[in-house]
Design a protein around this nucleic acid. Sequence first.
DNA 1: GCGTCCAGGTCTACC
DNA 2: GGTAGACCTGGACGC
Length: 303
Amino acid sequence: MNKPALHIATPPEFSYLRTIYSHGWVLLPPFSLDKETQKLTTVLSFGGEKQIPVTISDAKKSLLVKIHLSSDKAHRHYENVKAAVASIFRLDESMQEFYREASRLPEFRWVKKMGAGRLLRSQTVFEDIVKMICTTNCSWALTQIMVDNLVKKLGKPAGGVHAFPSPGAIAACSEKFLRSEIRCGYRAPYLLELAGNIAAGKLTVEHWRTVSSPTEDLFEEMRSVKGIGPYAAGNLLKLAGRYEHHGLDSWCRQKFYEIYKKGRKVGDAVIEKHYQPFGKWRGLFFWLDVTKEWHSKKFPFEE
DNA sequence: GCGTCCAGGTCTACC
DNA sequence: GGTAGACCTGGACGC
């Protein structure tokens, strides 16, 4: 029997592949990518109670979302599923101004042509924060281990897969469990504090994607969460649609040295000065600059 | 197989 | 405000 499905219209210059391959999130559960068909499966979670697996694919000018529920149950969730998928793919975010800017610059004309620039994000800000903390001070392999463990051991099962754990599920763990079973090491108290404060209603983060306060204020608000430093806050800002910070890490720095300095190391201020002319889009131009080679590969995360 | 060293952001204590 | 050291893990490397 065919699964219930819905179509979600995509904006002009939207590229499904360039969005899912915009950075490493697609490799972290609950996302699961079929590299042959390029279909993306994830588990959407609503109110911590309802978990719905969905499979998303490119349908030209729209996304096709198959819902892994029976038809009579699925139709009750259409609006929630639409909103969640639109948020994950940034469908409501206009990139027109960015593309106009990119088209003015010969070295960035490829950006509009390829539909690059939309950065994939998680269903919730909470999930993005946890994943971002799990990328700090470790290899990508360890990030994958930590997030795999979080989802498999703490996420609610749904149709043979698991959702991302709720703040309450993480807050209910002991620090020892997070260290020994999730393998998140010294990050354990940061995750506990974050999840505990959100679960207790002492901290709200979901408004970060929509709040209109100045970027520097939001940056400081992000930095006030333990475990979020300049790198993590800079990249969380990008996932909130603000691109004034670079979110520098060792990989990005190395890429910049190779592209512009023949491999010679320079200070962060030099990198920031280089992108200063790009105004409020500087962090996005920087990211696209250092990941340019990804966009010519079928599957960019393999050497 | 075992031990040692290193890379990777953030926090805290100290100057 | 700037800096040094600690945090913890997986992987690379040497023996």
